[in-house]
Amino acid sequence: MRSFRSAPLPEPKPWTAPLPDAAPPADMAIYQLPTGTYENRAALAYRGGSFGDLRKFAATAVLVQHPAGDLLIDAGFGKGVEEHIAAMPSYRRSPHELGATVHEQLRAKNYDMSRLRGVVITHAHWDHVSGLDELDVPIWMNPAESRYVERAKDAVVFRDIARTREIHGYTFDGPPYLGFSGSHDVHGDGSIVIVEAGGHTDGSVVVFVNLPDGRRFAFIGDLTWQLEGVTLRAERPKMLRMLADVQPERVRDGLLNVIALADRVHVVPAHDVRAYEPIPEWAGSRGGV
């Protein structure tokens, strides 16, 4: 089926300044932990997408191993995912396939859970936090996202899970970072930097991970749902922007920031299975990509 052609976002000037300093330790590593997928049509994901293009959207967590303590970025599907999906409005209940949860994958490879400092959520929507139901570790969240989860209907799953979880609050106490207004350097070595990228939710974030071999990743949550948001400069369709984003104009600004970086940083939209291909799946070893 032919897609409706629409004008892309204006092309931002590529980032040509030096990238921020980073001194990641030699034994730092990242892994992907896929927990399942759900179906959506490209036409609903980005402007110009085809209704005939039915895609599997990722529900994947990322484990970042660091000698000062490991972190997960998002949590994927959890043990209670069927109940979590049922808590959503009917129009958001997409067909889905379930895999092993993050907890099951870590346990199967004898991961030492005492190493896990917590889960940094890119935002508090159900498909990013479902897997928290089996992870008794702190949830990393900034004040703006804390305010969001107190009021938002879309945070009902998070509120239910978080009642029995520790919240590790952090602030954007660092300088602007790669076009984003504020930052938080997790370990103080530039290896994991969380930046303020509100708009999808009040306190949604992008997490930059900088590896010892020089490669850099930007885990952008839902600034765009598919890579075409970056490669074609195609934001969400207007109706989806109104439904999905609390401040669509801020999402657009954040997406343009990421587009400007795309030649120098590997961009990972949370729900695009293709974006995770350079990241090895968790296999219980400490190697890196």
Rank of each mutant, 00 (worst) to 15 (best):
R92P: 03
E82T: 06
Q105G: 11
S94W: 04
G118R: 13
E134I: 12
S130T: 00
E82L: 05
P89G: 08
G80S: 13
Q105N: 15
V120G: 00
G80L: 06
V102D: 01
G99R: 06
H103T: 14
G118T: 13
M113Y: 12
R115H: 07
S130K: 02
P138W: 05
L132D: 00
E83L: 14
I85Q: 07
S90A: 13
A124I: 07
K79C: 14
L98R: 12
I85D: 03
G118M: 08
H103W: 12
S114Y: 10
E104Y: 09
D136F: 12
E134K: 05
H84E: 08
N110E: 13
P89C: 08
S130V: 03
L135Y: 02
S114G: 14
L135D: 03
Q105Y: 13
K109A: 14
L132C: 14
E97N: 03
H103C: 03
Y111K: 06
W140D: 01
Y91T: 10
V120L: 09
P95D: 05
A124K: 04
G131N: 12
E104V: 06
L116Y: 03
H123C: 00
M88V: 11
S90F: 11
K109V: 08
K79S: 15
H123D: 05
K79D: 14
A100Q: 09
V119W: 07
H84Q: 14
G78C: 05
L116V: 05
H84L: 13
P138N: 11
L135S: 12
Y91C: 09
A86W: 01
G80P: 06
L135T: 09
E82F: 09
H103D: 10
L135N: 06
E104W: 09
V129C: 03
R93E: 07
L132W: 02
T122C: 02
R117V: 02
I121L: 14
P89R: 04
Q105L: 15
I121G: 00
V137R: 13
R117T: 02
G131F: 00
Y91W: 11
R117E: 08
E97I: 10
R92T: 05
I85S: 06
H123I: 01
G99T: 11
S130E: 01
A86D: 11
L132G: 01
P89N: 07
P95F: 00
L98D: 07
H128T: 03
Q105P: 10
E104T: 13
L106D: 06
H128K: 00
H123M: 00
V137H: 10
D133T: 02
P138E: 15
Y111T: 07
R92C: 08
A124V: 13
I139V: 15
D112I: 05
I139C: 07
R107E: 15
L106K: 03
M113R: 14
D136P: 15
A108T: 10
D112G: 10
T101H: 07
W140A: 09
H123G: 04
M88W: 07
L135E: 05
P89E: 04
D112A: 08
R107G: 09
P89V: 08
L132Y: 03
N110S: 11
G99N: 07
A124N: 04
T101C: 05
T122F: 02
